[in-house]
Design a protein around this nucleic acid. Structure first.
Lengths: 252, 252
DNA sequence: CTTTTCCATGTAAGATATTAACACAGATGT
DNA sequence: ACATCTGTGTTAATATCTTACATGGAAAAG
């Protein structure tokens, strides 16, 4: 039957990542290449695979491809970010309600989050889309003017949102940190939003990869003592770590 | 220089999603196809693009496609949608302020919109991201709970947004239409939002591809006489067209 | 200042993959 | 039993891709 075969092809491709027509042909010796081609065409139109010269590849495979070698050029320090995100994700429990910002570290976190029953608020467009893939997870997007650099929203209006929303936990990342200037970012409205987040949330976890240390951005939104947990990588300077521990902030 | 060209190709692909070699050739008339091929090969090895028969596509584009439930809709009736979107885009003038919904037709419109100084409000995540690519255009995302089926937001809270915002024009699309039941969609909160949009906007343009005609969805958000312009395709039934014209609605 | 080497590029032939066009058989509905 | 449709196969025509080799100019070596 046609449907079954198409389904089987899709599964094969998901497993193998990529297949040539000849490989497919050996899997399905009882139909012609032309038929397989037509099947692939259908799968492509359904958005499930990408046809490439010689065969096809699964969309999932493409996503893998995109995350690894590409990462190094576009977004730097991705490996650290992923590890930080994994640590952060491990802290999240079912049935909680949390805020995640819209930065790239937050995006990594979104990918690492388990598909369990939690409610997530975010101001990141890409983060929201990523989270929308998860069936058990509930996402609320904060509205506002879209900042093109980082695909996040922020606007004074966004504040009105917070009036009726509650979350226990805010997990955010900063663009820059120094002990003197605290955690800072480049946009005032964003800083505003994050400050408000701090007030709303019972606890605040900060994701900070060590490349951000020593940098200063125009708008500080939290000081060292405002956070409850600092999630960072192994390069994090020991003396700085002391500063956090002194204030009873968990560093991991 | 080679590097620059490769970079340029990558950017082009990110914007256009997909390009054939011939298209690339017209963009870079001073190098041979073979060179462009080699460039694409390099980009592929860097994981930034996927080479497909005839050309290449950006990894980002693929990731969009992979938003699966969304992808299925995206794939359907695309040609009509693009043509409708082009018509709609041609109606938009500089310095105006408009609302676009989050549906797939709206997504096509987002792609067709010229990069001029306009302000767009939307409740579609993908639409917002698409529009954020344009430098001169201003985007505001409406917040709310994210509906996973169509990557749009809608929630009673969203209404509060509208209190301080103004736009002249709303260009929206319906999931279903019959003369008796008007324009309808599947979600109550979404219908609510669109009704409110109607009140806020001076004019409402409706994009409706003919495949939607005769279908009924649970929640009507506008009746035939509520709209000012109907943008549709060539398959639109003549008798129905009469109904609109009778009410002084422009049909195009 | 020359010579060498290397790299980006161009050309064209040959290999490969894809589409298009037509044909056929079995299923489905009238 | 007839028409129709859908899935399939076959082949030729077309389009695309790769390979191999040639060229020219810039950087490196002499």
């Amino acid at each position: 039957m046609k449907k079954d075969r198409i389904e089987e092809i899709a599964e094969l491709l998901d497993k193998r990542g990529k297949l040539t027509l000849n490989q497919l042909d050996t899997y399905f010796p009882d139909v012609s290449q032309m038929t397989l081609r037509r099947d692939l065409l259908q799968l492509e139109q359904a958005g499930r695979i990408i046809r490439v010269r010689g065969g096809a590849m699964s969309v999932k495979e493409v996503q893998k491809v995109s995350s690894e070698p590409y990462a190094k050029k576009t977004a730097m320090h991705t490996d650290e970010k992923i590890r930080i995100a994994q640590k952060a994700a491990s802290l999240i429990e079912e049935n909680c309600s949390l805020f995640i910002d819209g930065g790239t570290t937050a995006m990594c976190l979104a990918k690492e989050l388990p598909d369990i029953n939690i409610h997530v608020f975010t101001n990141g467009l890409a983060v929201a889309i990523e989270l929308a893939q998860k069936k058990n997870l509930n996402v609320t997007m904060l509205g506002g003017q879209v900042m093109k650099e980082n695909l996040s929203t922020a606007s004074p209006v966004a504040k009105s949102y917070f009036e009726n929303t509650n979350f226990e936990l805010a997990i955010i990342s900063a663009s820059a940190f120094t002990p003197e200037n605290g955690f800072s970012c480049g946009s005032m409205v964003e800083a505003d939003l994050l400050k408000m987040t701090r007030q709303k949330a019972k606890a605040m976890y900060m994701m900070l990869d060590s490349s951000k240390i020593g940098k200063i951005m125009p708008h500080t939104f939290a000081r060292l003592e405002d956070i409850d947990v600092l999630i960072t990588d192994d390069e994090f300077p020991a003396d700085l770590k002391e500063e956090f521990l002194k204030r009873d902030i968990v560093v991991m």
